[in-house]
């Protein structure tokens, strides 16, 4: 794609955004495609095949997806297993390297090889299904490690703020405990405030409650609702339809790597016009 055409498209999108009264998008995804090579298929096919040609040596996890995320959005991504939700989400902070397409963050193309991705990741939090707390660090150190090492903020200030965050999730008394001493719900709340400690512009959630015992789902969702209300921009992959309905302002339905439907929760639940979406909702609701 030529840069001129890029700019034109930029302009068009910006205009559209301004018309919608939402300002500039924080994240803009353009024609994102991500294919994985199937195991054991790789080399033989790569030599003979045209990379653009769909072939059975590749899994097309995300296919030509374009979307924008605006400040304050709580975008919920739903869809059946293997539909590419995680891949899409993980492409936003480049944990997956897109096969083609662009991801714009703050007018910087993250897919550009020259982009220093680390500095942009500091501004995008990520919360994982399996928490991924650092087991060799205390709870407090889990929160303070990145702000101190990466943002070079004064330790005392970072620590004080981390204690405030811990108090906010009711875990201040566990500051010096290790992650192995916490319950799943507590771990996930810590993982969320760990990303908050970096003062991110947005937070990505990949099935944050799927690994939790049912009785712990509520406490994590409550924290996420709290965050949403405070205006945090969020992209959330989840199977929690209640959350999607209550907190999400946009819902995206994915299947086979494509966005099949997009809309507000009302549009989604009142009259889902897409037959695949109808079928999916009938299964999960």
């Amino acid at each position: 794609m030529s840069s001129k055409k890029n700019k034109a498209e930029h302009l068009k999108n910006d205009v559209a955004a301004a018309n919608a009264g939402r300002g500039k998008p924080i994240i803009r995804i353009e024609h994102l495609t991500k294919s994985f090579e199937k195991r054991g298929f790789g080399k033989r096919k790569r030599r003979s095949g045209d990379a653009e040609q769909p072939d059975d040596a590749h899994i097309h996890a995300v296919q030509d997806v374009s979307l924008s995320l605006y400040k304050g959005d709580v975008m919920v991504i739903i869809g059946p297993s293997g539909s590419g939700k995680s891949t899409l989400l993980r492409s936003i902070n480049m944990l997956e390297t897109p096969t083609s397409g662009h991801i714009w963050f703050d007018n910087v193309d993250l897919t550009d090889k020259a982009t220093k991705i680390d500095q942009y990741r500091q501004r995008m939090g990520m919360v994982f299904q399996h928490f991924n707390l650092f087991p060799h660090k205390t709870i407090l150190q889990n929160l303070t490690l990145a702000p101190i090492k990466l943002q070079k903020r004064p330790e005392a200030e970072v620590r004080a703020e981390a204690m405030e965050l811990l108090a906010r999730v009711g875990l201040a008394d566990r500051a010096n405990a290790y992650p192995s001493q916490l319950s799943g719900g507590q771990k996930q709340r810590i993982a969320i405030v760990r990303s908050l400690a970096m003062h991110p512009d947005l937070i990505l959630f990949d099935e944050p409650t799927s690994a939790l015992d049912p009785e712990m789902v509520g406490e994590v969702l409550d924290l996420m609702k709290d965050l949403a209300r405070s205006g945090m921009t969020m992209a959330v992959v989840t199977h929690e339809m209640g959350f999607a309905r209550e907190v999400g302002n946009r819902i995206i339905f994915m299947e086979s790597g494509r966005i099949l439907a997009e809309g507000t929760p009302e549009q989604f639940y009142k009259n889902p016009d897409n037959p695949r979406l109808k079928e999916f909702l009938s299964k999960v609701l």
Binding site: L95, Y120, F134, L150
Partner: peptide, 24 residues
Amino acid sequence: GQFEAGRSLGFSYAGTMVHIILPQ
């Protein structure tokens, strides 16, 4: 997941190794 957590916070490959992976 430890690696991904480190990278997603903004640590470089080397920083993730030093602060997160190697100690464990």
